[in-house]
Design a protein around this nucleic acid. Sequence first.
DNA 1: TTGTAAGCGTTATCAG
DNA 2: CTGATAACGCTTACAA
Lengths: 344, 344
Amino acid sequence: MTQPPIARRVTTRDVAARAGVSQPTVSLVLNRNPTARIAAETQARVLRAAEELGYRPNVVARGLAQRRSYALGIVVPELRNPFFIDVISGAERVAAEEQYAVLLSETGGRSPLAHLEALQGRQIDGIIIDARTASAVPSSVLAQTNVVLIDEPSGLWPGVASDAASAGRQAAEHLIALGHREIAFIGPADDVHAMRMRERGFVQTLRAAGLSIPSLFLRRAPGTASGGHDAMRLLLTRRSRPSAVFCANDLCALGALKACAAAGVSVPRDLSIIGCDDIEMARLVTPELTTVAVPARELGARAARMLLRTLAGAAPDVRPARLLPVRLVARGTTAAVPADRSTV
Amino acid sequence: MTQPPIARRVTTRDVAARAGVSQPTVSLVLNRNPTARIAAETQARVLRAAEELGYRPNVVARGLAQRRSYALGIVVPELRNPFFIDVISGAERVAAEEQYAVLLSETGGRSPLAHLEALQGRQIDGIIIDARTASAVPSSVLAQTNVVLIDEPSGLWPGVASDAASAGRQAAEHLIALGHREIAFIGPADDVHAMRMRERGFVQTLRAAGLSIPSLFLRRAPGTASGGHDAMRLLLTRRSRPSAVFCANDLCALGALKACAAAGVSVPRDLSIIGCDDIEMARLVTPELTTVAVPARELGARAARMLLRTLAGAAPDVRPARLLPVRLVARGTTAAVPADRSTV
DNA sequence: TTGTAAGCGTTATCAG
DNA sequence: CTGATAACGCTTACAA
């Protein structure tokens, strides 16, 4: 605390002194986009002085004066899920392009409120937040900031979302086309819209085809690798097994795949598995994971753009945005139901 | 721009008015750790007023006044590599505990300088940066901030690092113990200390055992899944194949494993593979990846702690810190060299 | 013990 | 066109 950790840097005042103009003039010259009405000669002097001194604007000070920070917050439950990483990456990219910073906050599921308030204390201009965390926080807190929800068309807040119902539908259609009739679902219990819709789209499509998921085949498990693993293990212990399983996300599916390998169940010969998200890892396992690709980076990028647009003056658009399309990527973990089963 | 995107919030002035004291008094009451010499009665009034008004300090303003931002920057080349994610996660955690924010910057390998300067413009109190990015930036820029390098004991800047040489050594010892003699290495070409040391530790240990890596078995490839994949594919096309391969990181190893699967090479029967990092995915593939566990989260956490300690007044410690221990995790991708080969 | 004054580095509003 | 002057919200001497 003794010596300031931040070295004293060149300020507009220094530049002004050097250029022989007033300090605000420097500010004008340096900021006004369409060169404000400043004598060309003066401008040149200021610019040169700034250049020579190596002037760098102090964004914090600017923020204070403008009552905005040119920073976005992004809150996710956990960094472990590559899906969120892609969202973050997409958002960070467009934010950076617009000179916005990104404050990262990983709640770890604990005290999301504290994380949010910490962000707001920093005068965040807006916040990108995942559905689960948002729902764990009083809306009065969210109301204090511009907020964009990821994958949860709430009607309360603006958001970007993928077509989760379609994801479930495509997964179902794929399995149906392959002849599967004994089908299971593994997904998280929490009330996250995207997950619910994936499930609903899946179940409804099956139903429309005259199929249903017996309750024993409907497994609630955390959307993590170990969640998927454990759920699949349980599924495999029963004497009547499904011939195909849809997992609400890829992490889950990879865990399930792992459980099959451990149990000596051959995928896709004995069992088909299909995930959702299409994280990078989906192509690194063998066989490669069949999944429904969700444009995570694009979700993040759009969320950021939406926020930036609002900050630029546009009215926040609470209407549910167009759902980003998802598409099935058939790879190696799904196959036609084996002949010896199809007659069951 | 018309209406400020940030809602006007309660300020110390509001609190002061309500408590019937001066604004600085509020500041004193709210901050002084050992309750500054303010009448207990006054303090109570102020605290109550703050409470009633729902006062939240404006960290930006405080930062401006104190010439520090209570924020850390963290710069990584890419979010794709789970290793960095863990580093970030570890750092974010300890930062958050100390009320520090984390500004995330993904360079994507492009214009690291711009990213750094953007961070510095925000009066970052310190920065955690990976070795590769740091080396791509003039040291004069780094000198403007408190910096901690990840996995690069440069002597120039403080840093935290894992025992990369030991990682290589352990990998080599493991393979040697399994009887391997035709051994390959796949690793990145860039001059990143940790990668170099992993390689060196590996090569030297082999050499000490009277083994060497023929140049054809020394493959330079990006430390990514596709890098590992491609390198392995090339290795497999030759008629003389190694019996074991050490990949400089897990991503690489997973790519290599994938290439084997695609080529019908059975791991670990026909070929052993060993990675380095122990990312979560290592346990999700089949067979599970044998690797050397590097405490990535701990690296991030220590980096943050080191930075915070410096900010609290401690002199930055440039001496190479104790290397964090790594340890081999023998799993499924390594096995004794097959009998029909050991005689070659 | 507390209020006054100054300053952090900008931007914004005016007179000149 | 340009330069004072006043914020922005807070901290930190320094007076009172």
